[in-house]
Amino acid sequence: MRTDDPIERAIDCLWKRYSEPLSLTEIAESALLSRFYFSRLFKDATGVTPGRFLAAVRVHQAKHLLLHTPLRIADVSTAVGYSSLGSFTNYFTSSVGVSPGRYRHIARGGGFDLPGPRPGPRAGCGAIAGTLDLPAGHGNAHVYVGAFRTPIVQYPPSAAVLVRVPVGRPGAYRLPDVPEGTWHVHAVGVAEGVWPDPWHQRTSLVGSCDAVAVAAERTAPAGVRLRRERPADPPVLLALPALEPLPPPAAGPRPALLAAAAD
Rank of each mutant, 00 (worst) to 15 (best):
E244D: 09
A259Q: 06
T46P: 14
A159D: 02
I73S: 01
S39L: 08
A172C: 08
L114S: 01
G146W: 01
L243P: 08
L114Q: 07
E180A: 15
P115H: 11
S34W: 10
R58Y: 02
K63F: 01
P135I: 10
H200M: 13
P100A: 03
H184F: 13
I7Y: 02
C13M: 11
I73M: 04
F148A: 00
G126Y: 09
E8T: 10
G137T: 10
G109T: 00
G86T: 03
P117W: 08
G193P: 09
V190G: 07
T219R: 04
G146A: 02
V167P: 13
L246K: 13
R122K: 14
N90G: 09
D113P: 14
P231G: 01
T25G: 12
P255H: 01
G126T: 07
A136E: 15
A260R: 07
L240F: 12
A216G: 11
R254T: 05
R2F: 12
Q201T: 11
S30F: 13
V145I: 11
L205C: 10
P117Q: 02
E180H: 14
H184V: 10
S208E: 15
R17Q: 13
A213L: 14
V167Y: 15
S84F: 07
L66V: 04
A55Q: 07
V48N: 01
Y155I: 00
R104A: 01
E229I: 12
L226H: 02
V178C: 11
A191G: 06
V214W: 09
P253M: 11
R225Y: 09
D197P: 14
A251C: 11
G120D: 10
P245G: 13
I11N: 04
A216S: 14
L66E: 00
C13Q: 08
V190Q: 12
F38K: 04
S84H: 04
D44K: 11
E8I: 12
A191H: 05
R9P: 03
S204H: 14
F42H: 04
S30T: 12
A129F: 10
R2S: 12
I152H: 09
F112Y: 15
L65S: 06
R225P: 05
R149H: 09
A136L: 15
S83Y: 11
Y18H: 13
A79Q: 01
D233A: 09
S87F: 09
I27H: 03
L54D: 02
A232R: 14
I106R: 04
V165E: 08
R118I: 06
L226E: 06
A256T: 08
E180F: 12
V57M: 02
W183S: 00
L226A: 02
V163L: 10
D4M: 01
L54F: 05
V98M: 10
L243K: 02
V185N: 03
P170R: 06
P231V: 09
V185S: 07
A129C: 06
A31E: 11
E29P: 05
G137S: 12
L14I: 00
L14T: 00
V167T: 15
S208T: 15
P50V: 00
R202K: 11
L134I: 12
L132F: 06
G252F: 06
L33R: 07
L162G: 00
A260T: 05
G193I: 04
Y91F: 14
D75Q: 01
R72V: 04
R9Y: 03
R218T: 02
E217N: 12
Q154E: 15
K16M: 09
R17G: 07
G189Q: 03
V194E: 15
T78R: 13
